[in-house]
């Protein structure tokens, strides 16, 4: 039962290559793969998030963050997302109107849920991709929210960073294992890092669009 050293070395090499590949190409797309036909026009809830004490309930900062060139619109050429602060009355999935709701009219995101994204899509276009026609976000007001315009108490989650992350899902991205990337599944209190996309996020969005 003597092991072949060449095979053993080769197996180790394959494992290292796989591991390295996973590290450099870490982004993950939602499965099944799905994209918008054209950049979505998000409506950002004009009521704002009541716990954000920046004089504007975080609505303008959120809109600016999700459309910023530091976020998805700076990933490459062209616009990935548009957004306006507007009424989100008539909130529903499948209506072709993507909405970022600072509350949760569905009652879906309660208790330990911080924010939830829903994507609505049709079956394959025929080329293996699916067509997103709606992606709505709901927020749990029971948690502590802040913004970069609101001195952080140490326990607040910045609304801008969380929403840039959730919008990433709405555009078709899943979580990455690259720490520090916007799509990494973690967000620290008083840290708005996720509002700025990193190389891994850029590669992901440019893979899709």
């Amino acid at each position: 039962m003597k092991r072949n050293p060449i095979l053993r070395h080769a197996a180790l090499t394959v494992a290292v290559i796989l591991s390295a590949a996973a590290g450099t190409q870490a982004y993950v797309l939602l499965s099944p793969r799905r994209t918008w036909d054209s950049p979505p026009n998000y409506r950002v809830d004009n009521r704002g998030q009541s716990s954000v004490a920046d004089g504007d309930f975080g609505r303008t900062r959120t809109r600016n963050a999700i459309t910023s060139s530091s976020a998805w619109n700076g990933a490459g050429t062209g616009t990935r997302i548009n957004a306006t602060v507007a009424s989100i009355s008539g909130f529903r999935l499948g209506d072709n109107i993507p909405m970022l709701n600072f509350r949760d009219p569905l009652g879906a995101c309660t208790g330990n849920c911080l924010a939830a994204t829903f994507t609505g899509f049709f079956s394959s276009r025929g080329n293996g991709t699916n067509r997103i026609n709606d992606a709505d976000i709901v927020t749990n007001t029971a948690h502590n929210w802040g913004s970069t315009g609101d001195p952080c108490s140490g326990q607040e989650f910045f609304i801008e960073g969380v929403m840039v992350h959730e919008i990433g899902h709405g555009l078709g991205l899943a979580h990455t294992n690259v720490s520090g990337a916007t799509m990494f599944p973690s967000v620290s209190a008083c840290n708005n890092g996720p509002a700025t996309i990193e190389a891994d996020d850029r590669a992901a969005i440019n893979d899709l669009y």
Binding site: A22, N112, C113, A116, T117, V187
Partner: peptide, 19 residues
Amino acid sequence: VGLLLVAAVPASGSTFIHI
């Protein structure tokens, strides 16, 4: 084993506080 590792990568997301 390598392919299984690649296939086992995550897919999608919302944010929850641990319970």
